[in-house]
């Protein structure tokens, strides 16, 4: 063990390079890597299980159920249907939880604990400049975060698609949890969470406070994305007759009635009811309308939202480097 302490003959570099620091980053965060890796592997395995055997069993059960018709005595595999639903819900939650976990780890362990205990200062006086120190703590985790969120979201999308037309209760593409977990939004959220954790750790210099602040930031960003998503791409308007009510499937943006004075809130949903017909006539309504996103808008919506989140992550990263430069006055070099 001690034999490895001999001086490495590398006279060229005056400061430690980033790859050399990664080795110590991995060593310092080994428990988190093992724990996080286990969680990711378990979730990935559950998703593969979900998309394969569970989907098949649930689809078969639904087939049997639908074949029953109105037969009074009929047997189908209800267990499989329930198990599919449970595993689907839990894996979706697991995928959506990744950004929160990344943010909490970045704020609490990656940066906050080092600024709180002073080991960051130790690193800065051991031939690692503050900027390089922060870079080493952002780049490798960012790459890992992209890989993990990408893998899990891809698996989730695959598992969801496998059951789409075969399982009667499968969630639609625009169900909010499914919408997020199937795409690139978790990746954007997780990267923003990583940067928020670093910034919070540098500003607050308290591990627990930085952990909470970073996780809260991800929560706020998620709520913002959730609210903004329907408006991130032009929606498709469908106009339908008064008797039909508003029509059109997909991610709903808004709906109502068209009147000579413009768009108005719909007082009721169909003129086939007498009271409704009278109200609509009083308003001078000519038709119902519905603004919605068809399934083909899924990726444009996801990519615009992810782009915004990446911009936020970039700003937070820039702010973290600025804070570091202001405190130490030495971020260059």
């Amino acid at each position: 063990m001690t034999a490895a302490l001999t001086t490495p003959a590398a006279p060229a570099a005056r400061t430690a390079g980033v790859p050399r620091q990664w080795r110590w980053l991995v060593r310092l965060h080994r428990p988190a890597l093992i724990g996080g890796g286990t969680l990711v592997l378990l979730t990935a395995a559950a998703l593969v299980w979900l998309g394969g055997p569970l989907t098949d069993a649930s689809a078969a059960a639904w087939k049997a159920y639908n074949a029953c018709g109105f037969t009074p005595r009929c047997s189908y595999d209800q267990e499989s249907i329930l198990l599919y639903k449970d595993v689907y819900n839990w894996t979706t939650i697991a995928v959506l939880a990744v950004p929160f976990l990344v943010a909490a780890w970045a704020g609490g362990a990656l940066v906050g604990r080092e600024t709180e205990s002073g080991t960051a200062r130790l690193a800065w006086t051991q031939g690692v400049s503050p900027a390089r120190w922060l870079a080493s703590r952002l780049v490798a985790p960012a790459v890992l975060t992209v890989a993990v969120t990408g893998l899990l979201a891809a698996l989730h999308h695959w598992a969801w698609a496998a059951g789409r037309d075969r399982i009667d209760t499968a969630t639609s593409w625009h169900d909010m949890d499914t919408f997020h977990a199937n795409g690139t939004i978790p990746m954007g959220l997780a990267l923003a969470g990583l940067a928020a954790g670093a910034l919070a750790g540098l500003l607050l210099r308290r591990a627990m406070a930085a952990l909470a602040a970073a996780a809260a930031t991800v929560g706020v960003l998620w709520a913002a994305v959730h609210t903004a998503v329907p408006y991130l791409w032009p929606s498709v308007t469908r106009v339908s007759g008064l008797a039909e009510g508003p029509l059109g499937r997909g991610l709903l943006v808004s709906e109502g009635v068209l009147t000579p004075g413009g768009r108005a809130e719909a007082p009721c949903v169909s003129s086939s009811m007498h009271s409704c017909r009278d109200t609509l006539a009083d308003m001078g309504a000519t038709a119902f309308y519905r603004d919605a996103h068809p399934a083909s808008h899924y990726w444009p919506l996801q990519l615009v939202a992810t782009g915004i989140l990446l911009a936020v992550a970039g700003l937070l990263t820039y702010a973290a480097f600025r804070v570091l430069r202001r405190t130490t006055g030495t971020a260059r070099g």
Binding site: L5, P11, A13
Partner: peptide, 26 residues
Amino acid sequence: KPLYPQLTVAETLRMGADLNPGHWDA
């Protein structure tokens, strides 16, 4: 005297060697 609590003494010194390439006196 901040140090990484999870490292051993030998690891800490090895880290010093790694972070100070070219001018480390083991």
